[in-house]
Design a protein around this nucleic acid. Sequence first.
DNA 1: TCCACACTCCTAGAGCGTCTAGAGGTAGAA
DNA 2: TTCTACCTCTAGACGCTCTAGGAGTGTGGA
Lengths: 113, 113
Amino acid sequence: MSKPVELLQGTLDMLILKAVSLGPLHGYGILLRIQQISKEVLQIQQGSLYPALYRLEHQGWIASEWGESENNRKAKFYRLTAAGRKQLLLERDQWSRLSSAVTGVLNAIPEEL
Amino acid sequence: MSKPVELLQGTLDMLILKAVSLGPLHGYGILLRIQQISKEVLQIQQGSLYPALYRLEHQGWIASEWGESENNRKAKFYRLTAAGRKQLLLERDQWSRLSSAVTGVLNAIPEEL
DNA sequence: TCCACACTCCTAGAGCGTCTAGAGGTAGAA
DNA sequence: TTCTACCTCTAGACGCTCTAGGAGTGTGGA
């Protein structure tokens, strides 16, 4: 009776950093973009997103500014800071190291064990 | 001041199932095997391993039996059950779906956004 | 005109998996 | 004997994501 998993824990911050690395976006927009690019595979909940944005801004990896959305609503736009860019590279590295290690184990054959 | 990440949350169960899918292993052995196959990239802590083993056995995905290790110590050997085999396939699927989605987002270029 | 709905932000609390930091017992080597 | 590697186990802290709410505002349709 396990719930459907929609995210790999620990990747959300990285995904957000990546999303805003390509130009400022407001929170709700980040959510839609990631969903869209991943062809609806990655489903981010608002209750995960906003705490994450707070976390990232608090650490100086993104910066925010109130503005107006494409739909004429007030929205908080986030952009990547220099520190955030570094962090993104770092997390990207870690991700590729770890994910390929996991895949490697999954593909291990008896002789290797 | 974030700690070094040694595991992608949610992958431990799958890694354990995979490890025992190739033949019975005791807990400590599972730990060493995964570490070895992943070339020390994946570092599993004992405090993560044993609760995970309990979890998996409780759900009927692995079964245990006391025996003797290669070093003459008593050790609890785990093997994959039929249900565990199903579960492994399922988690493997989910992993490849999600991890490639994440990688896809990381490789997204501005035009796609 | 008024209502519904999509858009946008936010929070509290629960749930769960992993980590830290311990304890304890045994075989074999020094 | 003492030390180390082997092997199992637990309690509690910690951090991230989810559920489940609340709230306000433009726009379009009835």
